[in-house]
Nucleic acid binder design. Structure first.
Lengths: 237, 237
DNA sequence: AAGAAAATTATTGAATTCATTTTTTCCGTT
DNA sequence: AACGGAAAAAATGAATTCAATAATTTTCTT
C-alpha cells in the first residue's frame, strides 16, 4: 500500500535542494495538512484503517510533529478517529452519518440557493445554464459519469454564487467527507431516480432564473433529501 | 493578563497525582484543545492579540507540542490566524465575517427548524414552550440579560431537537466563534427590535407546534437575517 | 501442543533540542 | 535627536529524544 506520492522520498532534512530558486514561501504550513487530507479523501486508506504515521512521514519527507498536527486537524474535521494511545483511524461513515451529512448538505445548499438568488451575476447564471445543458446532454446519452461531473460543478457554482466564503469552506469540508463515499456503488443508485433528479435540476435552474430564493432553498433541500432517500435503502453499516 | 486557570501550575510531568483512583483515561487528548478554546472564546485574549505560546504552556502545565497541535485545530476552526513564522493571532471578525456568519447560522437554524418539525418529541416541545414563556416574562419586565439567556437556550434546544449530531456540532462551532462578539455592545442593538424579535419567536413556536417545517425553516433564516441587519448598521471593521 | 506469563519490540504522546526567522536592543552615523 | 544597521535576544517550526503504553514474540507451565 501507500501509493507513491512522495516528492522527497527520504532524508528531507539536512540537504538543500539542488534545484533552482524556489519561492521562499512554500512552507510546510497548510501543505502537509492538504496533502494528508487529499491522501485520505482520495481513498488511499480504507475505512477503519489505522493511519501509519511513520510511513506517511517517510512518504511526505517530514517528521512526526507536523504530521501529528495535521492528524489532529483532520480528526476535528471528522475524517479521522483519534483513539487514545492507539493512534488515528480512518473514520468509516455509518449509515447514520451519511443520513445526517446529506441533511446538513441539504441545509447548506438550500442556504446557498437562497443567497445565490440575492447575489448571482448574469455571468454566473449563464455559466450555470451552460453546465446545466451539458449535464442534460449527458442525461440524454445516458452518460452517468459525465452527468455526475456536471452535476457536482453546478452545485459548486451555486455555492460560489452565494458569495459567502464561510459557507463555501464549510460546504467544501463536508463535500470532502462525502467524497470518500461518493464514487462507491451506493451512488450508482442515483440511476434509479435519474429522470426525477433531472427534473429537480430543471426546477433549480428555473427558480434561480426567477431569483425565487425561498423556493430554491426548499427545492435544494428536497433535492438532497431525495438523494439521501435513494441511499437509505442501502444495506451496509 | 493571563487569567489564572491553571490546575497544575508547574512541573506537570514526572510526578504522579497523589489523589485517589482517577479513571485511567483523563488523557490530555481533547483536554488541552477544549481548555484553550474556552480560554479564547471567553475573551481572555483581545482581537488580534498574538497567542503567547510559552505563557499558555506554563498556564496549562504542558509543553509546546500539544499546545501547538491545539493551535492548528483552532485555526482550522477559524478562531485563530496562523501567520508563517510569526505565530498565531486571535482572528478578529470583520464586518463581512459577521455578515457571513449570521447567514450561515440562519441556514443552519433554518435546517434545524425543519428537522425539528420532523423529529421533536412532545417533551422537547414542552420544554421549549416553557423556555419561551420564561423569555417572554423577561421581555415584559425588560430584562435584556435574562432574555438573551433564554433566547440562546431556545435556539440550542431547537438544534438539539433536530436530532442531527453533525448539525449540532457544526452549529456549536459557529456559535463559539460568535460568542466572542455576542456580549459586545453590538448585540445591545438588538434592543431596538426587541418587540419584533419577540414576535418572530412567537411565530417560531407556532410553526414548531404545527410541525410546519418549511415555514419554520424560512422564519428561522429571516429571524437571523433580521438580527444581522440590526448589526449591519454598526461602524467598526 | 495449547495456553498463560514474561520479555521483547513497536507505537504513541509529549518534552526537549536545534536551526531558522523574527523581533528587539544597542550602537554609530549624520 | 533621529535614523539605519549590526548584534543580541526571543519566537517559531520542525526534528529528535524519552517515558508510557500497547502489540508482538518468546518462553514457561501444564
Amino acid at each position: 500500500m501507500l501509493k507513491s506520492l512522495a516528492n522527497k522520498p527520504e532524508k528531507a532534512a539536512g540537504e538543500a535542494e539542488a534545484a533552482g530558486p524556489q519561492p521562499p514561501t512554500a512552507s510546510l504550513h497548510g501543505e502537509v495538512l492538504t496533502r494528508l487530507r487529499d491522501y485520505i479523501v482520495e481513498g488511499n486508506l480504507a475505512d477503519g484503517d489505522r493511519v501509519p504515521e511513520r510511513e506517511l512521514c517517510a512518504l511526505f519527507g517530514i517528521s512526526r510533529t507536523p504530521l501529528r498536527e495535521a492528524l489532529k486537524v483532520l480528526a476535528s474535521e471528522g475524517l479521522l478517529d483519534l483513539l487514545p494511545n492507539r493512534g488515528a483511524r480512518v473514520r468509516a461513515l455509518t449509515k447514520r452519518d451519511l443520513t445526517e451529512l446529506f441533511d446538513v448538505m441539504g441545509g447548506l445548499e438550500g442556504l446557498a440557493g437562497r443567497l445565490a438568488c440575492e447575489n448571482i451575476t448574469d455571468e454566473q447564471l449563464a455559466e450555470i445554464e451552460g453546465l446545466h445543458y451539458e449535464m442534460y446532454a449527458c442525461y440524454l446519452r445516458r452518460d452517468l459519469h459525465g452527468y455526475f461531473q456536471y452535476n457536482q460543478k453546478i452545485h459548486q457554482k451555486i455555492v460560489a454564487a452565494a458569495g459567502n466564503a464561510i459557507l463555501a469552506s464549510t460546504y467544501a469540508s463536508f463535500a470532502g467527507r462525502l467524497r470518500r463515499v461518493r464514487y462507491s456503488a451506493n451512488l450508482a443508485r442515483e440511476r434509479d431516480r435519474w429522470s426525477e433528479a433531472m427534473r429537480e435540476h430543471e426546477a433549480i435552474l428555473d427558480a434561480l432564473r426567477r431569483k425565487a430564493g425561498q423556493e430554491l432553498s426548499d427545492i435544494m433541500f428536497h433535492h438532497l433529501r431525495n438523494k439521501r432517500s435513494a441511499l437509505a435503502g442501502g444495506d451496509e453499516n
